[in-house]
């Protein structure tokens, strides 16, 4: 049994700094999806998102192995903030929205996988989640930013307020409106509010 599976992120970071590569593997597996999604929602291209996710973790590796990791704050917020910043930098450089395609030519938003579901329910989930990601992109920029920072980048509302130069109440208000607008858009798009969609 892997002894690192139940450890806190902080304990895993300490072990990794001491040279334990299994601890790092655990950290990567724990946070890879949030880091990847954070980037993908910004750059909208799976190839670029894969590259930037690697860059984010490589940056984290150098910081931790170089003894510059700050113990304050959560690892998840920290790594997602690195990812968010890399994605924003990339987006500013590109200043365009690339076409989203995969190696097989399919749309990047059609590849989610779920277990123990019928083909039909899988398809419904795939369609719903794909549509949801599209709807996130249509939110006003300030609302989309807070939603992505809080939900996918795992930053606290105070951290978001500090990062965006607003009060915590403004950050909370933006999140509230993001969720309200998302719900309205979902209803308008006839996205079913089926509880079966929520379980992975």
């Amino acid at each position: 049994m892997n002894t690192t599976t139940q450890m806190s992120d902080s304990a895993l970071v300490s072990l990794y700094i001491q040279g334990n590569e299994s601890a790092f593997e655990q950290l990567v597996n724990r946070h890879k999806n949030k880091v990847y999604t954070t980037i993908l929602l910004i750059v909208k291209d799976s190839y670029t998102a894969e590259d930037l996710m690697q860059d984010a973790f490589i940056k984290a590796i150098h910081t931790m192995k170089g003894g510059r990791y700050n113990e304050e704050g959560k690892f998840s917020s920290w790594i997602c903030r690195i990812a968010h910043n890399l994605a924003i930098d990339h987006f500013r450089k590109e200043k365009r929205s690339p076409v989203i395609t995969l190696e097989d030519g399919s749309n990047v938003f059609n590849t989610m996988s779920f277990s123990e579901d019928s083909a039909e329910s899988l398809q419904i989930k795939e369609d719903t989640h794909a549509r949801l990601r599209e709807l996130i992109q249509t939110l006003p920029q300030s609302q989309r930013e807070v939603l992505m920072m809080r939900h996918y980048a795992d930053m606290s509302f105070q951290e978001i307020a500090d990062a965006t130069g607003v009060s915590i109440n403004t950050a909370l208000g933006r999140m509230r409106y993001a969720l309200i607008n998302l719900r309205k858009k979902m209803l308008k798009s006839n996205i079913a509010y089926d509880k079966n969609l929520y379980s992975e």
């Binding site: 790092f24 990567v28 597996n29 990847y36 690697q54 590796i61 989930k125 989640h129 949801l132 929520y198």
Partner: peptide
Amino acid sequence: LLDGASKVPSKRSVQNILNYS
């Protein structure tokens, strides 16, 4: 629902990171 909308990176990218470390 937002949790379910998260995406999974390729195994190859994850392995690249681990190999680099």
